[in-house]
Design a protein around this nucleic acid. Structure first.
Lengths: 221, 221, 221, 221
DNA sequence: TATGAATGAGAGTTCATTCAT
DNA sequence: TATGAATGAACTCTCATTCAT
């Protein structure tokens, strides 16, 4: 348990610490058991707070996981930006793919959180919350989109965001297929089911490479 | 309510009809409200049966949705096979993409069912059920895989299944992104969020085309 | 499964066979799992009949177990009568106790059925059924009562039935205490709980012996 | 309904009061309708609480009835201890029997709760719960056992507990036979069934007296 | 007489959320 | 601000019994 030492959060810094404790608890528990088997009581216990206190920081369970997704996406985009800036442009397709895939693969949670997003957003989330989330996401991805466009000169204006969304699509799709529960993992041990045992990183790399090559070809016409 | 006319299902054909009535009810309700807001009581009412009767045909709620997915996937693959056989090989990439995308887009449920699959399989499904499902799916996709390989001569042996799985990845990924709840749809009306309004068919076509072009290029090396 | 070969019970003999098949199934299943975990579907399957057919022979689940108890009690009393008649009267207390205890201990079901009786009779049994059962039991025990009175000359008229009822009391009481479920049996392995591990036969013998000695003493006053 | 006045139990004393309210409700309802016809919803209503609240105090229905049994047994043993201590030792058999029987007969619930115990312990009770219960019972009975041994000097060491268990056997056995449901009571009005109409107190006294006289005789040998 | 499909009330339990303290 | 006791609707699943065939 990440027991929070503070007795009362009187200033913003302490409040932020409480908020983070809750999100950390949620992240840990989500990775262990998934969205539906995590309940508010456990999140509260794990974060060292009382159940009621959690509701002072987040209005609903969904709001917690929306915040978690925001945080995770943001941290990931930060790392992508960092990486793209560090390298000299233009990149080869291979190198860009390597870098993007690396950034994601290092974040084990991304694939599960990415799938969660859709689930959460259609449950118990208000118009305002959803709007804020989407607008934030939009704004946050603009920088990265432009960096991608700079990295791959064959991209037309606006296609940086397309690549990013394509990436998201892959993370969700391959993420689900490559992330079986223990029971399912056992099922996939069956010799006939070998082709269904998917290596996330490898698939992601292949898909993205093919897509970018294809896009390049299309753009050239 | 789809009240079933039969008073009592005495032979296998009538039992099949009952089973279908349940699946139809589940499909309808799922499209209206999603997996978690559909419950057994409603499925029973919708199919004109008593709650207990539903349990005579399916042991759990998850079994219903697994059967639904099997049915949907199978019908879809049937149609793909049909289409591919009708056309003369080899296809151009564009024509194959058109055909595949058409087959899917005509099936509104596919994209939601495809996402559901992962969710269902990790909940309350026994090893045996999961194994049966996966083995059936594997076997069912082999014919189609081979037809795809025949349609696109640049594919290496085994890559037909890769294309199918890539397709599944797209259906899940773009499906989730293009399928907002009413609230979310309203959010996406915001002018800044235009790029997040995704047209499933279009994205699917683009992604698949790029991927296949890229794969062709890679195979040629 | 004791599948009954007959296709249709047209005469009384065949009907009796069906009835016995049901009771046999109920007995077996009851010993395996107790009254509440045995259900009509299983009884039907085990007796090789359809569920509806079982209801042609017994109106309720409780009626089955009432009939089972009657049968068991009757068979037990038969054996007691037999034994008492075979031996030359009068008996010593020790010898009578030995014989009575032996007759019961040989019938593993008796102790569980004896406890069941009370449970069954207060659930879903009609006035008529209960009356018939009790009258039958009364009549059936009269012979045995008299044989006991003959065996122990110190008994006053009517005390034969008292002894029989005392015996029933012991069978129920010690039966429950000496018949733990697997979990409870494990609990009783704890060294401090040794005195709670009860040997049915031994306790029955001790209790009955003491009781009869006491009764003899009281009668002598 | 025993509506509890407290709005919210904030300290341990108030929580104890809630717990007691639940146990009181369970006791009342159990005496009215027996274990199987009492359900959690009714217990909740009767104790003036919501269904969920009951589960804050007891994890399962069985836990409630186990606690009830513990409480009842404990109160009974308290009273026995009290009585035995008040009287000057040694007792005559008659006086001891009188006292023991009085203590029980004053507690109408004992006989039904005693029978219930076996039923509850074999259903939905964990190893730990069962162990705790049995160990507590063991410890609790030691004092009383010793007091009984002091009261009847002819008892050998350890036989105090034997007497207590014999008593339990009688309470269960005669309890079941003397405690008919309304229907059964009506059945027993039949003139031929007079011997089956059992007076609990009388039978208990007779049985215990005989047993103790017999035990005394055996010990003297 | 025999069947087994159909019934539906009812069970115990969970958990996001509220609100008195 | 923080607590955690209280809520109660909602859930899946069972099973004795009925009755159309």
């Amino acid at each position: 348990m990440n027991e929070v030492v503070l007795k009362r959060a009187t200033n913003n810094q302490q409040k932020e610490a409480r908020r983070d404790a809750i999100l950390d608890a949620a992240r840990t528990l989500f990775l262990q058991s998934g969205f539906f088997d995590v309940n508010m009581a456990t999140i509260a216990r794990q974060s060292g707070l009382a159940k009621g206190t959690v509701y002072l920081y987040f209005k609903t369970k969904e709001e917690i996981f929306l915040a978690l997704s925001t945080e995770e996406l943001s941290a990931w985009l930060d790392e992508v930006d960092e990486t793209l800036k560090r390298a000299s442009s233009p990149h080869s397709v291979e190198r860009l793919v390597d870098q993007l895939v690396d950034c994601i693969a290092r974040r084990e949670n991304m694939k599960r959180l990415a799938s969660l997003l859709h689930l959460v957003l259609e449950r118990n989330v208000s118009f305002e919350e959803a709007l804020t989330f989407k607008l934030g996401l939009k704004q946050r991805s603009e920088v990265t989109s432009r960096l991608i466009e700079k990295a791959l000169p064959f991209l037309k204006p606006g296609q940086g965001l397309d690549v990013l969304m394509q990436l998201h699509c892959y993370v969700v799709g391959w993420g689900q297929m490559s992330d079986p529960t223990p029971t399912l993992a056992e099922v996939l041990e069956h010799p006939d089911l070998k082709p269904f045992k998917i290596d996330f990183k490898e698939q992601l790399a292949t898909s993205l490479t093919c897509f970018l090559y294809g896009l390049e070809a299309l753009n050239r016409r």
